[in-house]
Design a protein around this nucleic acid. Structure first.
Length: 523
DNA sequence: AAAAAAG
């Protein structure tokens, strides 16, 4: 078993790691840190939750420990898709630089330039940024990237989804070609493949399996709900949500409630608040100070219910979330994995409960196909019929005169017309592997470097520098699903879509596929 | 169909 002490990290970094209570690296860390320290480019294929963040921060800090930054010329650069993730990476740096004097700046949108400018002017070793704001600084001439020695792209596939790839290419071109690049993506969509072929030089490829979706410690359930009337669906969903929360009682210490739409995030948050639940919304239309404050409150336990869009689905690390409620079935099955991965972190128990209305059944089927198991159906705590007359006093009751706030918790709220155009959007569920793989099913927090030794699969870095060319030719069959940019390639679907070895056991806590390597899963 | 990010 590899230990951090075997990895040639700076002693002061090791000290900080120890103080944080970590001893053994996760597979992605064990695989990526050595080549990164040798100065090689790294292509890391890993999800959040695998300890990815530390797999680049630790070697970066070690390498930056010598030398000092000059004014306006940062020595390294980390790009993240969302502000929250960038902030989290920044925190990670703080944790592991505590015995060193490295400087950093967090360049994200939604906050004023002043502070960021000041830091840049003083000179920073590490720049952590979202693409838009970084380019903004660059264009204002505030930033010179010609001294960047190490550049990290985090969550590249999400950048792709969000249309950031052109920005990323631009940023690549703003940095010297001699830089070292550490590039992370959960999948290798064709467009991602293209970028890595263009901007990475002979990278060491390190691949770990998809995050344990339904880790044995996450109990899942789905409530099938058919509204009494179409126009009451939203209201009844909220009633049921509260009932589901109540049914958990004290076991639900805190929870994230995911909705598919920002508007619903607001509505649900308001509704919960109105009914006396300690809830607050977070999504991309709220201003950054609000987002930060809300998240902070949730992290430190002041806030019990975080109602969120998918801005919070990935990567966010709140160590102890007891429950995840999916108010809607996510329309991208993959997001289900990310969402429920917010609970059951670091080996804790977690529970993930979802509400599914008829319209979402197709999405549910996609989710179940992805996680290769049937999600146990749960009873409606309000009883299956007459949801309208059930025990709660939700404002939907017609004898209540008024609901004056915007939650419209009554029948006046009508669903906007739904189009159910079903795009065929089957997504291969497992990243394709052409080399050996390592399964990383540890429930570790993404920002945490550790994993207790016993739950660690044997780390095996895969160096594919040599293997890549002569491997199987079906290289870019990976399908990119979303409408990001430049993915008008619809050609070949990955053949991964069948799930013959589905685990259907309802009491089953560990779906078998988690223990399988990608290669095995393919069969 | 929606979410995220630069305003």
């Amino acid at each position: 078993m590899t230990k951090f002490t075997d990895l040639n990290l700076n002693p002061k970094v090791l000290k900080a790691i120890q103080e944080a209570g970590y001893e053994s690296p996760t597979p992605i860390q064990a695989g990526a840190i050595p080549p990164a320290l040798e100065g090689k480019d790294v292509l890391g294929i890993a999800q959040t939750g695998t300890g990815k963040t530390a797999s680049f921060t630790l070697p970066m800090i070690t390498m930056l420990a010598r030398g000092r930054a000059r004014a306006r010329m940062p020595r390294s650069l980390v790009l993240c898709p969302t502000r929250e993730l960038a902030a989290q990476v920044a925190e990670n740096f703080d944790t592991y630089t505590k015995h060193l004097k490295l400087t950093k700046a967090l360049l994200i949108g939604g906050v004023s330039f002043g502070e960021q400018d000041k830091l840049i002017d003083k000179g920073v070793d590490v720049l952590i940024a979202t693409p838009g704001r970084l380019i903004d600084h660059f264009e204002r001439g505030k930033l010179i990237l010609s001294d960047v020695k190490i550049m990290v792209i985090d969550e590249a596939d999400r950048m792709l989804d969000m249309g950031f790839i052109p920005d990323i290419e631009r940023i690549f071109q703003m940095t010297p070609f001699t830089r070292q690049t550490l590039f992370f993506s959960a999948t290798m969509a064709p467009e991602i493949e293209r970028i890595t072929n263009t901007f990475l030089s002979n990278p060491t490829r390190v691949e770990v399996a998809r995050q344990a979706t339904t880790g044995e410690n996450i109990e899942q359930g789905v409530l099938m709900l058919t509204a009494s009337r179409k126009d009451r669906e939203a209201t009844e969903k909220r009633n049921v949500l509260r009932a589901l929360i109540d049914a958990e009682g004290d076991k639900c210490t805190n929870a994230i409630i995911f909705c598919n739409r920002k508007m619903d995030v607001d509505t649900v948050a308001k509704s919960l608040k109105k009914h006396g639940y300690d809830a607050a919304p977070i999504h991309g239309d709220l201003d950054q100070s609000q987002r930060t404050k809300t998240l902070e409150g949730f992290r430190n336990g002041d806030l019990r219910f975080l109602v969120a869009s998918d801005v919070a689905a990935r990567g966010l690390d709140v160590p102890s979330v007891s429950h995840v409620y999916n108010f809607d079935v996510p329309s991208h099955a993959e997001d289900y994995v990310h969402r429920i991965g917010r609970t059951g972190r670091a080996g804790r128990d977690g529970k993930a409960i979802m509400i599914c209305v008829p319209r979402d059944e197709k999405n549910l089927a996609d989710v179940e196909r992805l996680v290769q198991r049937e999600i146990p159906r749960i009873e409606n705590p309000l009883g299956n019929k007459a949801p309208a007359k059930s025990a709660t006093d939700d404002a939907g009751k017609s004898d209540k005169p008024a609901v004056q706030d915007a939650t419209q918790d009554d029948a006046t709220k009508t669903e906007k017309p739904k189009r159910t155009r079903s795009r065929s959007r089957k997504k291969p569920e497992a990243a394709k592997v052409e080399t050996e793989t390592v399964t990383a099913d540890s429930p570790e927090a993404d920002t945490a470097p550790e994993v207790k030794a016993e739950q660690q699969p044997e780390p095996k870095a895969v160096k594919s520098d040599e293997k890549r060319q002569d491997d199987k030719p079906q290289h870019d069959k990976q399908q990119n699903r979303r409408g990001g940019r430049g993915n008008n390639r619809n050609e070949n679907r990955n053949q991964n879509n069948r799930n013959d070895n589905k685990v259907v056991g309802l009491g089953e806590h560990t779906p078998e596929f988690i223990g399988l390597s990608f290669a095995e899963r393919r069969d």
